[in-house]
Design a protein around this nucleic acid. Structure first.
Lengths: 197, 197
DNA sequence: GCTGTAATTCTAACTATGTTAGGTGAAACT
DNA sequence: AGTTTCACCTAACATAGTTAGAATTACAGC
C-alpha cells in the first residue's frame, strides 16, 4: 500500500532527525566536553529549539544513553569485522584483543569522553544500549576461552590492566602516547603471567 | 600582645568554618554523589546561606579543590606514617605499596568519588592541593628506586595496573571485592615481570 | 482538493543551581 | 567612642533541564 510507504518514510525521517541530534551532541562533546554540552546548544546545531528535542528523547540523559549505545555498537561492529583476523597463537591473540580494545577506547570512548558517563548524575545505561558493550566483552572472552583461559579472574585482570592504561593515557597524557607505548609490554607481562607460549 | 591573640582566634574560627564546610561537602558527597552536591545544601548543613560560602571559597570548584587537597594530604600523611613499615624485600615492598595505595584509593578516593573530579566542568586542581598527590607518588617512586627499579615506564605500568583495579572495583563492583581480590595476583604478575626475588 | 488527525516544532515559563551586588550588624582596632 | 573590617545576610541574575500548551506541518480518508 501507499500508506505503508509514506509511514515508512515518516519513520525514516524521524530516525534521521534522531541521528542528527546524536551527531550534533557528539560534535559538541568533541569541542567542549561531555558534561558541558547543553540542550540549547545541541538543538541550535540541529536547527531547532531545545524543547523540540523532547520529541525524540525523554531527557538529556537519554541522549547520553543513545551516544553510549552508538559508540559501543560501532565498537562491536568493528570487533566483529576483525574477528577473522585474530592470530592463531595464544599470545598474539591476546595482544590483538588488547590492541583492538585499546585503540577503540582511546580513539572513541576516551576522545568522546564516554567513560565519564558513569559520573553524570543519574546516568544509567539502558539494557538495550548496554548490550553491545557486553557483547564486545563476550568476544574477548571467547578468544580467551579458545586458548584455554577460562578463569573469570584472568579476564577481569586483563580488562583492569588495559582499562588502567586507557585511563592513565586519557587522564595524564591526552594527545600523547606515554601509556600507549606501555600496551605491548603490559600484554607481554600478562601473557607471561598466564604462561602463554 | 593581646591584639595578636584576638586576631589569632579570629583566624582560627575562620579556619574552623572552612573545615566545617569541607566536612559538610564530604558528608553530602557520601550521600548523594560528588556531582550532586549543591551549595545551598552544603550551606544549610553548616547553618548558613549559599552566598556566604563565597566568603570562604571563590567558587564551587574551589571547594572541590580543597576536598581534593585534603584527601591527598591525608593519604600522604598515612604514607609517611607507614613509611618505616615498608618490608625490606623488593617484592614485599612493591606489594606493600600497592596495598597501601589501593586501600586508600578504594576507601577514600573512590568512596568520596574524588576520582570523578577530573570530569567536573572546569575543575583543575591548584598547585598547592595537587602537591600531596605528587609527594605520595614520589614516596612510591622512592621505594622502587630503593630496589633498583628506576625506569619511569615501570612506575607508569604500576600506577596504571593498580589504578585499573581501583577503577574496575569502583565502577563494576562497588561494595564488593571482585577486583580487590585480584590485587595480590596482579602485584605478583608485576613483580615477576620485573624479575624481583 | 479538502478536512480532520496525528506528529513535530514552537513560545513561554517553571525550577534548580552557581554566582554577584549590595546591605547589616557585630567584632576588632585605634 | 568612633571607625573599620568582615562574615553573613537578602535579593536577584544567568544558565540549565524540563514542562505546558499553542501553532504548524505532514499525512489519511473522503
Amino acid at each position: 500500500m501507499l500508506g505503508e510507504t509514506k509511514r515508512d518514510r515518516q519513520a525514516e525521517r524521524r530516525e534521521a532527525t534522531r541521528a542528527e541530534i546524536i551527531d550534533a551532541a557528539w560534535d559538541m562533546t568533541g569541542e567542549v566536553g561531555l558534561a558541558q554540552i547543553t540542550l540549547r546548544g545541541v538543538a541550535e546545531r540541529v536547527g531547532m529549539r531545545a524543547p523540540s528535542l523532547y520529541s525524540h528523547f525523554d531527557s538529556k540523559n537519554a541522549i547520553y544513553d543513545a551516544m553510549f549505545g552508538q559508540a559501543w555498537s560501532e565498537c562491536l561492529a568493528h570487533f566483529e569485522s576483525v574477528k577473522e583476523q585474530v592470530p592463531p597463537g595464544a599470545r598474539e591473540a591476546v595482544r590483538f584483543a588488547a590492541r583492538t580494545f585499546f585503540d577503540f577506547a582511546v580513539r572513541d570512548l576516551a576522545r568522546h569522553q564516554l567513560m565519564n558517563l558513569r559520573t553524570i548524575p543519574g546516568f544509567d545505561p539502558s539494557e538495550e544500549n548496554y548490550a553491545p558493550a557486553v557483547a564486545a566483552l563476550d568476544l574477548v572472552r571467547e578468544i580467551f576461552h579458545r586458548h584455554g583461559i577460562t578463569a573469570p579472574e584472568e579476564l577481569d585482570l586483563f580488562t583492569a590492566l588495559i582499562g588502567g592504561l586507557v585511563d592513565s593515557q586519557h587522564a595524564n597524557d591526552p594527545g600523547g602516547d606515554r601509556w600507549a607505548r606501555l600496551l605491548d609490554p603490559a600484554v607481554d607481562m600478562f601473557a607471561d603471567h598466564l604462561g602463554l607460549p
